[in-house]
């Protein structure tokens, strides 16, 4: 990948990476740091990365940087709350997409990431598998379970509203 191609990848994918990271950690400064680290790592290896695969490489790097960051901060998903229908919110919801993103925050990191990669970027199971290092069947299981959780969450919110 040439310098020009690298700069193109910055222009094309930095927003996507930033949104992906930001939806995970909800901290703009940390998200910016992770994006910067991600592109820094890609730059160090830019001579060995083909431009055709740079998007996948970027997401993979961002994902692992993100996971490391989350592990460092001992992030804990509130999966149990959702599963037992313990969640309750008296916030007013502007639209369905916002509600969905709130539900997304309650998913474990792995499920959350694969759904984000699937819905935001339209990656296939195989591509998500390559990015995350999970097996293809694991990716599928996470997505299906995540979708069920989101559906249940929407249903409960509708009941509450």
């Amino acid at each position: 990948m040439t310098v020009k191609e690298y700069n193109n990848s910055v222009e094309q994918y930095s927003d996507n990476i930033y949104r992906f990271v930001l939806k995970n950690i909800k901290d703009t400064e940390k998200a910016k740091d992770i994006v910067q680290d991600t592109f820094e790592k890609v730059w160090k290896n830019h001579a060995d990365i083909s431009y055709a695969k740079v998007k996948s490489y970027l997401f993979s790097t961002a994902y692992h940087t993100l996971i490391d960051s989350i592990r460092r901060e001992k992030y804990k998903a509130e999966w149990d709350k959702a599963d037992e229908n313990k969640y309750y919110s008296n916030e007013s919801y502007s639209d369905l997409n916002e509600v969905l993103h709130q539900a997304l925050d309650r998913l474990p990191p792995d499920q959350k990431n694969v759904i984000l990669l699937r819905d935001y970027e339209g990656y296939s199971y195989q591509e998500i598998s390559e990015i995350t290092g999970l097996t293809e069947s694991q990716v599928k299981v996470y997505i299906f379970r995540g979708r069920q959780f989101l559906k249940n969450y929407i249903g409960k919110i509708e009941v509450l509203v």
């Binding site: 700069n7 910055v10 930095s14 996507n16 949104r19 997409n97 759904i115 819905d119 989101l150 929407i154």
Partner: peptide
Amino acid sequence: TSYTQTLLKANKNIRYQLKGNLKRAT
């Protein structure tokens, strides 16, 4: 119908403002 509603949409208004810092020059 419920499952068709679970598809997430990215907020395109969220943009990375520091692209200039990431770019490299020759």
